[in-house]
Lab assay of single mutants.
Amino acid sequence: MTEYKLVVVGAGGVGKSALTIQLIQNHFVDEYDPTIEDSYRKQVVIDGETCLLDILDTAGQEEYSAMRDQYMRTGEGFLCVFAINNTKSFEDIHHYREQIKRVKDSEDVPMVLVGNKCDLPSRTVDTKQAQDLARSYGIPFIETSAKTRQGVDDAFYTLVREIRKHKEKMSKDGKKKKKKSKTKCVIM
């Protein structure tokens, strides 16, 4: 069974824990209790493949930012979460993405942009803004509501699919490099 290491990042209060708990335990946590770091595991079937999701729910508070490099190193894919009623959390996505790329030393890291709290009427981040940002990053965008469960499975499952595509691409690139290195030079 394939294991996928997913990391949920975003500013404090955007609903990272609520999304994760909704996926794992099928219930909505409405009281806000700032996370330092929590880890969850769940076995699911995605596109006919049974897999184990190892999900790291991270601290959004700035005082825990020193811990970010460590979990970013171990993560295979990242859910970059903002709240649709919090423009600052949307603007912060850029910083999370840049930090992930720096730590992973790669421009090509599996990510999904997630606009959470889409059940709320007080939207300050337009869907088109988020779609445009995701398009500019070359990553999928999904709106979710941890409260109603809308888009929750889709967000995590899409990230797994992005990781699969990335692994497939990397193995193809690896095979191309191996083929090239088999060419021999004969000096007579």
Rank of each mutant, 00 (worst) to 15 (best):
M67H: 07
F82M: 13
E63A: 04
D119Q: 04
G75Q: 05
K117V: 15
C80V: 13
E76I: 14
V125E: 13
G75D: 03
S65H: 06
L120A: 12
M111E: 00
G75E: 04
V114C: 06
F82H: 10
N86W: 02
E76Y: 13
E63N: 05
R123K: 12
T74G: 12
R97A: 14
A83W: 02
G115Y: 07
P121E: 15
R123Q: 13
R68H: 08
M111T: 02
E98L: 02
F90V: 13
A83D: 15
A83M: 04
R97G: 05
V103Y: 09
M111G: 01
T74R: 08
L113P: 00
R73N: 11
D119T: 04
V81R: 00
S65E: 11
R68P: 05
E98F: 01
N116K: 00
V103C: 14
G115K: 03
A66I: 08
G77H: 01
F82D: 01
M111D: 00
T74V: 07
H94R: 13
T124R: 10
A66D: 13
V109P: 06
C80M: 12
N86Q: 06
M72H: 07
E76N: 08
D108R: 07
E63L: 03
P121L: 09
D105A: 08
D126S: 10
S122D: 14
P121Y: 10
K117N: 12
T74N: 14
M111V: 04
L79P: 01
K104D: 04
R68T: 06
N116L: 15
T124H: 12
F78G: 00
N116D: 06
V125T: 11
N86S: 08
R123L: 11
Q70E: 08
V112D: 00
A66Y: 12
K104Q: 14
R68G: 08
H94L: 15
K117R: 13
L113K: 00
T74M: 06
L120R: 09
G75S: 08
K104M: 13
Q99D: 04
L113T: 01
K104E: 04
R123F: 08
G75R: 04
T74H: 11
Y71M: 07
D69Q: 12
M67S: 06
P121T: 12
D126W: 07
F82Q: 03
R68M: 04
M67R: 08
R97E: 11
R102I: 03
L113E: 01
Y71Q: 14
D126R: 05
M72Y: 08
R73A: 12
Y64G: 03
V112Q: 01
F78W: 03
S106P: 05
M111A: 01
D126N: 08
D69G: 07
G115F: 14
R73D: 12
D126Y: 08
G77D: 00
V81F: 11
S89V: 03
R123E: 14
R68W: 02
V103E: 06
M72P: 13
P121I: 08
V125L: 10
C80G: 04
M67G: 07
K88V: 09
S65F: 05
V109W: 05
T124E: 14
S65W: 04
Y64Q: 03
V112P: 00
T124F: 09
E107Q: 07
V114I: 12
M111L: 07
R73H: 12
M67K: 06
R97C: 15
V81N: 03
D126M: 08
C80W: 04
R123V: 12
S106E: 13
Y96W: 15
P121W: 10
I84D: 15
E63F: 02
H95R: 14
E107M: 12
R123Y: 11
K104H: 14
C118E: 06
M72R: 07
S122P: 09
V109I: 13
S122T: 13
G115R: 03
G75F: 10
S122C: 10
D69F: 01
G115I: 14
K104C: 14
V109H: 03
Y71G: 15
S65A: 12
H95A: 14
M67I: 05
V81D: 00
L120M: 11
D126C: 10
A83F: 01
K117E: 11
K101D: 05
A66N: 11
D126Q: 11
T124S: 12
C80H: 03
K101C: 11
E98K: 04
I100A: 03
V114R: 00
S122V: 10
S106A: 07
V109E: 01
K117Y: 15
E98W: 01
S65G: 13
D108V: 05
L79S: 00
S122K: 09
K101I: 04
L113W: 08
K88W: 09
G77R: 00
D119A: 05
L79M: 06
V125A: 13
L79T: 00
E98I: 01
R73P: 07
C118Y: 09
V81L: 11
G75L: 03
M67P: 06
V81I: 07
K117G: 13
G75T: 08
D105N: 11
S89G: 07
V125N: 11
Q70L: 04
T124V: 10
L113R: 00
N116W: 00
K117F: 15
K117C: 14
D108G: 06
D108S: 08
C118F: 12
V81G: 03
P110F: 02
C80P: 00
